[in-house]
Design a binder for these strands. Structure first.
Length: 955
RNA sequence: GCAGGAAUGGCGGAACUGGUAUACGCGUCAGAUUUAGAAUCUGAAUUUUGAGAGUUCGAAUCUCUCUUCCUGUACCA
């Protein structure tokens, strides 16, 4: 009987579906284990062979854990909001929901063919109203929370209001906006409702603010920092400019320290932790305030309504407050708000010209050109807080508005950028370091710094100087020690259609949340998916998009009276909203009354193993950790890190095929002959990899039929063949190097695909796909099949296994178990091959041995395992069969074939009993004729004997 | 610039806490079977672990220097 993968795989996929074999229960006596994949965005292109790599690995682990007696949760779903469906809608008018539905069907069909053990009863789709209802709900929770630094967690806004009512805000220690006014309890109680809401908004964990955003005109939307690569949009490479807009933001900065600390407790790859650590960018230093000389402005006090005059102040953040006596000028970012206010009339024109010129330069230009030093003097001076000296204030584009306060105290002797700026504009460079030459460059080695020319800091090394100066600044009231984070609050509004609508309407300009029982607020229908002509987001096109507070329904816009019917928010949420909590939803995916039931989340707790790409390091993986910590603060989830262990699978790359066209002709040169032509005479064209066989030979007829441009192609062949060039690059339609898993499943079967993807190399590594290698695992499966068959008949023997049989089996059990625990799936595939080769050589068809072998293989190649398992007479699925128990007694040896080395080089082997004493080994070896032959009469200096390992003769 | 990672036959890759270097597979070559193709079976070859030094009885593995490549990130004050 032949191994017929098509028949077998179809049969068992249907069996699993029908019997709901992999449906997980939320109650069980078994220990729980939660294995999760990063859910895919269902794109129109469908899956290529690279996508399932991580899914196969996690599936193997999930199946392994079932064999090991765990109650395994292994769900799958779709991150189904996103830009491609929307852009398709813009082009064709087809509703994104339809596109998405179609794509999901394709994905599901492809996934099913690979034989994953997903519990599809828990499927989630972020674009389903039943799902995004809870995304909206979590948003509301964030709106209703503030971050209390004293308790170091998020709390309900009611606790904040209570504080305001009792004692005003002076004693409140919160993460909030920076420009907060101080008020007393009486003042608070006297504020209008709108005023109170305005103030509260400055404390909420999600808040509205006028922020400088990354606006992408081509996409008509705002992009997050991690959606921009090299100054252009990640998607489509469109230019991005800075623009002020009112946007929802998430106060992720409140969690900066906890996001950093949390990394210590989770088993994630170090590179990924490093990326997050850098992204959060903690730096320790001080805030220092410099007064601007002879400037005054009037402050309208909210409290007394009387005007007070105050000098302008420039706040700077510095990591080197110890070098404060080295300050010889200050630099403001051109966008700094004080620039216009402090510039003297004499300098005004020059400054304005400069500011305008910088504003025009895109972020990209500014980044590309870091060597040109530019700047302008404002004419104003600051007063050095310690020395009282005048310090000129400059503006320069090397100072970024978005980091720190957008202003620096320039210490040219200690910072190379300040140094270069000072040299360029011929500014003073005072030296405040002991015994250091700064005539050529700045001295930035803080560990070796000893401060000089700095009054009370003289003679102090860096660390002591830091402490002393911060203490002194705090005493005198113009500075304080501060930890600064690079992590910015995350903009949460997108000007897109295909995203979660906000559960928000506006009353008197203030945002109001829609109550839980009225959720979800469902995405409205629109005529056009583009922004409106007056620049509003696509939801501005909706005609029925107002909130009636009497009926609590969405009603037509013309009913808006701002009394009981109000306009709804026009922005939608970003892509990361739905993916920041989906792992919790799987625990209780159909719950209609709660985002997840307390019982379910208490049972499953967190993801035990999460597999996905490292490209989400500063996006999804950071936001998800943030939301999890927030939900934890609210007592809604039991742990504050959502994934205990994470593995980044590498990407499978395509191997593109290249033909060489002689420029201006329709003639193509084979790879080996292309050197006969000059490089500029040849054009490289990529052709479909389906036209290439395993030895890089091109199917000429196939090419002619492939695209009209090749119909009358001529070829210059080598040995009668056309050999193509190969290039490893990302799988992409435009390179014609995409390999569809469906084709592989059809030809070799899902089990072969699964084994082959694992066999390709270590999971985390990037590796090119080469279909040619798959025949190896395919013939392995055929050999495995043959072990159970004698010609046409299924035939296994019942007797006692031989010693050799047992040795092979237990060696395999040990290795495979270790490999799976270490996620070294490639080596366990080799182990299976060795085992099957050995058992074949032993002519073993012993039932007891084969049965256990099947269980070992079943996580990798579940279909063939199920089939043979049932042929062995089992009525239940192999999926829950107990994993074989390793027994070391089968591997015990009495002899060891020792490698005999001379000066570290192995020369011959010698079989000796393992219990032989060192002395006897030495005697035996030295007496051996081959030893004497090697020594040629010399006397060895030393003989190293490591029992059970090696013998090394030195001399 | 900074941070992290990698380099082993023609190719993908093995090699546990230093102890027989290239397991396993692909490809190649030879042979068997076959009308042909395909499939199957048997056998063979390749290298000295990016370069150089050090520690060691012994280094792919540990240390240092250098080279190349990949990833992330950056006028971050």
């Amino acid at each position: 009987m032949q191994y017929n993968h098509q028949e077998i795989e179809k049969k068992w996929q249907e069996y699993w579906a029908k019997n709901q074999t992999f449906k997980a229960s939320n109650t069980s006596d078994k220990p729980k284990y939660y294995v999760l994949d990063m859910f895919p965005y269902p794109s129109g292109a469908g899956l290529h062979v690279g996508h399932p790599l991580g899914y196969i690995a996690s599936d193997i682990y999930a199946r392994y854990k079932r064999h090991k007696g765990f109650n395994v949760l292994h769900p799958q779903g779709y991150d189904s909001f996103g830009l491609p469906a929307e852009q398709y809608a813009i082009q064709t008018g087809q509703h994104p929901a339809i596109t998405t539905e179609t794509n999901i069907k394709t994905y599901r069909g492809q996934l099913d063919k690979i034989g994953f053990s997903f519990d599809w009863s828990r499927e989630v789709r972020t674009s389903n109203p039943e799902y995004y209802k809870w995304t909206q709900w979590i948003f509301i929770q964030l709106f209703n929370s503030w971050y209390n630094k004293d308790s170091d967690k998020a709390e309900d806004v009611s606790t904040l209001v209570a504080k305001f009512e009792a004692e005003g805000n002076a004693t409140v220690n919160a993460v909030c906006d920076e420009d907060i006014i101080t008020f007393t309890a009486d003042e608070w109680n006297g504020f209008s409702s709108t005023k109170q809401q305005e103030i509260l908004l400055q404390y909420r964990l999600t808040f509205l603010s006028d922020t400088e955003v990354n606006w992408c005109p081509a996409l008509g939307t705002v992009l997050a920092n991690d959606e921009i690569v090299n100054g252009v949009s990640e998607r489509g490479s469109h230019p991005v400019i800075r623009k002020k807009m009112t946007q929802w933001s998430m106060r992720i900065s409140a969690y900066a320290q906890r996001l950093l600390d949390g990394l210590n407790g989770i088993d994630w790859p170090q590179p990924l932790k490093d990326i997050q650590t850098n992204w959060i960018g903690r730096s320790q230093g001080a805030m220092v305030s410099f007064e601007v000389q002879s400037t005054k402005y009037k402050v309208e006090s909210d409290v007394t309504s009387s005007a007070v005059e105050k000098p302008y102040k420039i706040d700077v953040f510095t990591t080197r407050p110890d070098t404060i006596y080295g300050v010889s000028f200050m630099t403001l970012a051109p966008e700094h708000e004080l620039v216009a206010k402090i510039t003297t009339d004499a300098q005004r024109e020059a400054v304005e010209t400069y500011v305008e010129a910088t504003a025009k330069r895109s972020e990209r230009d500014r980044m590309a050109d870091v060597k040109t030093i530019s700047g302008v003097f404002t004419g104003a001076y600051a007063i050095h807080p310690f020395s009282g000296k005048q310090v000129p204030i400059w503006i320069g584009d090397y100072v970024l508005a978005s980091y720190g306060t957008g202003a620096v105290m320039a210490v040219p002797c200690g910072d190379q950028r300040d140094y270069d700026f000072a040299k360029h504009f011929d500014l003073e460079i005072p030296n405040i370091f002991e015994g250091v030459d700064i005539s050529e460059e700045a001295f930035a080695d803080k560990e070796k710094s000893v401060i000089a020319n700095s009054d009370f800091l003289n003679g102090l090394p860096y660390k002591k100087a830091m402490k002393t100066v911060i203490y002194e600044m705090e005493q005198r009231g113009f500075g304080y020690g501060k930890i600064n984070y690079r992590l910015r609050d995350a903009v949460f509004s997108r000007q897109r259609y295909w995203g979660e609508p906000f559960p928000v309407y506006y009353k008197d300009g203030m945002p109001q949340m829609i109550e839980k029982q009225h959720l979800p607020v469902v995405l409205p229908e629109v005529e056009k998916y583009l922004p409106t002509e007056d620049g509003k987001p696509p939801l501005g096109n909706a005609e029925v998009w107002a909130w009636d507070t009497t009926t609590n329904t969405v009603v037509s816009n013309d009913k808006v009276d701002n009394e009981t019917v109000f306009p709804l928010e026009l922005n939608t949420m970003p892509g990361w909203a739905g993916s920041s909590w989906y792992f919790n939803r799987y625990m209780d995916a159909t719950n209609d009354g709660d985002f997840v039931s307390a019982a379910a989340v208490e049972y499953w707790k967190e993801v035990d193993l999460y597999i996905g790409g490292s490209e989400h390091a500063t996006g999804h993986l950071l936001y998800a950790r943030f939301w999890q910590k927030f939900l934890f603060d609210l007592g809604l989830v039991p742990v504050d890190e959502f994934a205990k262990k994470l593995i980044n699978q590498g990407m499978i790359l395509g191997t593109s095929a290249i033909v060489y066209r002689i420029a201006g002709t329709n003639k193509y040169v084979s790879l080996g002959l292309k050197d006969n032509y000059k490089a500029d005479e040849l054009q490289e064209l990529r052709v479909d990899v389906k036209l290439i066989n395993s030895s890089d030979e091109l199917d000429l007829e196939g090419l002619k039929n492939w695209q009209p441009q090749y119909a009358d192609a001529e070829f210059e062949l080598e040995d009668g063949k056309y050999i193509v060039g190969r290039e490893v690059e990302k799988m992409s339609k435009r390179w014609f190097n995409v390999v569809n898993p469906d084709d592989i499943c059809e030809e070799y079967g899902a089990d072969s695909l699964r084994l082959f993807e694992m066999f390709l190399g270590p999971l985390e590594q990037f590796k090119p796909w080469k279909t040619s290698g798959i025949s190896g695992v395919y013939s392995f499966l055929k050999k495995l099949w043959k072990l159970f068959h004698n010609g046409e008949n299924f035939e296994v023997s019942e007797g006692e296994p031989t010693k050799d049989n047992l040795k092979t089996l237990h060696k395999t059990i040990k290795k495979v178990e270790e490999d799976i625990e270490n996620f070294s799936f490639n080596t366990s595939v080799s182990t299976f091959m060795i085992a099957v080769n050995e058992l074949t050589a032993q002519k073993c068809n012993n039932k007891a041995i084969l049965e256990e072998l099947l269980i070992l293989i079943s996580p990798y190649a579940p279909h063939i395992a199920e089939e043979l398992w049932s042929k062995l007479g089992h009525e239940n699925s192999i999926a829950f069969a107990a994993f074989p128990q390793f027994d070391g007694k089968h591997l015990v040896e009495s002899e060891k074939e020792y490698p005999i080395s001379f000066n570290g080089k192995m020369r011959f082997k010698l079989k000796l009993p393992l219990d032989m004493s060192k002395e006897d080994i030495e005697k035996t070896v030295m007496a051996h004729e081959k030893t004497q032959e090697q020594l040629q009469g010399r006397t060895p200096k030393k003989v190293i004997i490591v029992p059970g390992k090696i013998i090394n003769i030195v001399g």
